[in-house]
Every structure is written in structure tokens, then in C-alpha cells.
Design a protein around this nucleic acid. Sequence first.
DNA 1: CATCAATGGTCTGACACTGGCCCAATAGAA
DNA 2: TTCTATTGGGCCAGTGTCAGACCATTGATG
Lengths: 239, 239
Amino acid sequence: MNESTHLAAVLRPVRAGNAFEETVERLLQAIKLGMVTEKLPPERELAARLGISRVTLREAIRALQEAGYLDVRRGRYGGAFVTYVPPPPSQGDLRRAVADMGTDDLADALTFRMAVECGAAQVLAAAGIDGERRDTLRRRLREVNSAGPDDYRRLDTAFHLAIAELTGSSLLAAACADARLRVTDLLNAIPVLQRNIQHAAAQHEAIVAAVLAGDPDAARRAVAEHLEGTAALLRGFLA
Amino acid sequence: MNESTHLAAVLRPVRAGNAFEETVERLLQAIKLGMVTEKLPPERELAARLGISRVTLREAIRALQEAGYLDVRRGRYGGAFVTYVPPPPSQGDLRRAVADMGTDDLADALTFRMAVECGAAQVLAAAGIDGERRDTLRRRLREVNSAGPDDYRRLDTAFHLAIAELTGSSLLAAACADARLRVTDLLNAIPVLQRNIQHAAAQHEAIVAAVLAGDPDAARRAVAEHLEGTAALLRGFLA
DNA sequence: CATCAATGGTCTGACACTGGCCCAATAGAA
DNA sequence: TTCTATTGGGCCAGTGTCAGACCATTGATG
């Protein structure tokens, strides 16, 4: 194994696609994750946030509009309104989603998610968090644990992301968001069963308890167990 | 805290800069990390790897040539030869590097690195590795632990990256490479003391032992301790 | 009803980036 | 010496992207 082994990690493609494609992807994920429930920010603001021109953003919005995800209205109090509602889960969708990304990429994504989420929980537990942030974490926990099937995925995402964000590292938050994005389609394709929610709730409790107790090992273990459960659920529906 | 809190993580800039800038950055990092010690791959191949046009790549190479990092020669057996040699560490360089990135970004980078590297070690330990990969890991360990001050940083990078790569997740490998890149300039600015090398060597041994033993908690703890040591070293030189 | 502020819609000139093609130089091979 | 494969160097036409300015529409407000 010579030096070129590591080169792959550094000399990888500089950009994933053109600006238009990446923008469509981003917006689609924001919508599917339920992070934008009403309407998108104004074009000018959104373009600035995404670091692209308004023209490119508008092309992406138009594509999503034509695909039925958005309803764009002009005039004051207008905007790009989200019309997307998650489709009912089906095994067919799951298999298609897996086929779309390939089994290698699936393993990659699950491994990546395991690493960054465990890392985030561990860091947060090790650093300790102050009163206000403790409240935030507890609130997220309450929200996801009291969610109904419709809101569950969205609030689960919010909970997991909150852990990364509370570390104060935007790089870590971005990595966790990215990891979650990569499995969104898969999770959306499997049904949300009350039994699974309750099982996950106990694990969420354990994660929060470990973080609040400042126990990095316990936090790591709790997250690992939780994500293992999710992965097992996926495998179950695929088998 | 409404839904918009999480938006920051998803509606972040789509691209970090233009293709030229990103390419210069990539190549510079590959050079500084010592991953390219002799010469770069041919322009045509490199452009394909980086997913950019040859024109853009050539501009980046010319910039690095003018900055004294490369020596470009034409004709068969020509190419872009690396002329860069790491400058002697100095406190001034360190302070400048810190000032360049800002203290917030520094904390962000250190936190990010802690999370992803701990996550990688944990995942690798949990998954277990076969004979061939065990040998790879052991070889990397031997190399870094027997390195002299000149080669130390390069082989240390190789060792840390090997852990991420052995998980088989290219996303994770990329994240770890990215994390390392963000602290390269800082590490290059602090002197490599024999005492520090020996201290780190013991920690590297502990990491490998935990991974080979399949003990995720121990692996996590060993990496955390190691990176804490590095962070403390940085703080010490800054104080 | 007239006005206004916020928002999407459109256009233009400039620059960045691409893909492809051919030229120039170089060192080894014949 | 001559040939040849490999590599960097240069150029061009086409497309993507940008920044900014201006137009069009809308619903609230006075």
C-alpha cells in the first residue's frame, strides 16, 4: 500500500454536480426532512444563504414546482409554499430507494451516520452543557417522544440534529445533517409503527440521560444501540 | 426555538468558492499533508479525478507553481513536481494560523475532529477487522511510531486516516481527512519534540490495541485522550 | 380607493468553466 | 539519429453562473 491509497480521500471530486443540481437536492432534502413546512424564505435571502445567484435558485425552485413539491405565488405575502406531503410508506419504495443508492452506498451512509452521531453525543456529554441548552435538549426529547406517526420523522430528525448543534460545532452539525439526509428516503419508506416509536423513545431517553450526566461512554453506547436498531429495522424490511 | 433553527445546517452554502479556489485548496492540502511527495498525477487524469476541466486545474497548478510549491516540467516523464518542504515551526506561524481561521473556527475544527475520529475508531472496533486489515493498521502504527521528526506529521496523518479508511466508509474517510486538513497548518506550526512523539506513540498503541480487541468504548476513549493531548499541546503553545 | 412594501419575474452584460482539439517539448526506444 | 509515447501549453466556441437593475403582482393599510 503506497501513498496513493490515501489520495482518494483528498483528490476526490471538487464539486458534486453543477449549482443547479446541488440546489435542487438541498431544497428537496429540506422539504422531505420537514424543516420547511410552510414556505421557503424569499428568493433573495435564500440565494444568499445558499451562496448562489437568484437565477440559479429560481431554476431549482421551478424544477421543484414542476415536480409538485412547491406552489409559487407572487406579490407581497407570496413565496414558494410547500405542498409536499410524505407518501405512505411501502416496501416497494424502500427497495427502489435502496436500489437507487446501491448497497455499497447504503452501508457507507449507515456507517458514516453511526460514526458522526456517536461522536456528537460523546463530545456533547464530555463537554457538558449549561442550563439553557439542557432545557433545549429536554424539550426536543419531549417533542419527539410525544409525536404522532405523522410528525414522528420530522421531530426525530430535529432531536438528533439538536445533539450535534448543541456541541456548538457547525461542521459537526452539517456532517450529522448530511448523514441524516442520506438515509431520509429509506426511513420515509418504512412505516412508523407505534411499537417502534416506543422502543426508540426509551433509547432517546437513555441518550439524553447519558449526555446530561456527562458520561461520554454511555452516550456513545446509547446512540450506537439506537442506530443499530434503526439499521436492523431497515434490514428487516428488506429481507 | 422554531423550525428555522435547524435550517442553518441544511440551507448552508452550496459551494465553498469557485472551482479554481477549491482546487488550489485541495492540492495545497494534499501537498502539505505529504500525500503527494514526488509529483502530481498527469493533468488529464488529475482533472478527471477532481471533476474539473483541465483549464481550471492548470490555473490552480500555475498558482501553486508561482507560490513555490510546485516545479512543472514538460515532455514525457515531466509533470508537476512537489518542491514544498515544511517550514521550521515557529510560534509566530502558529499565532498567524490561528488568527487566520479565528478562534471560533478553531474550536469548531477541534470539536469536529474529536467527533469524527472517535466515531471512526469506535465503528472500526465494533465492526471488527480481518487479518489483512489488521496488518495494515499495525504497519501504519509501526511506521508512525518509528518516524523521525521530519516524517512524523505525514505518517501521523496516514495513521489517523487509515483508521477511517479501514471502516470502508468513504464518507467517513472524507470527513476525517477534512477534519485533519483543518488543523494541518496549526500542527505544522508547532515543533515536533521527541518527547511528544513518544507520548503520542503510547496513545497510538492504545488506540490500535482497543480496535484490534474489538472494544469500541476503549477505542473511543483512547482516541479522545490522544486528541485532547494534541489540543492541549496547541493551547500550551498559544498561552 | 390609492398607496406601499414585499415578493416573484425578467433581462443584460460580464465572467467562469467546460470539452475538445491541436501544438510543443522531452526522454527513452528503435 | 530518428521515432514515438507521454506530458504540459494554448486556444476557442459553447454553456453555466453571477450581480445588478428593473418590471409585475399582490394583499394589507391608511
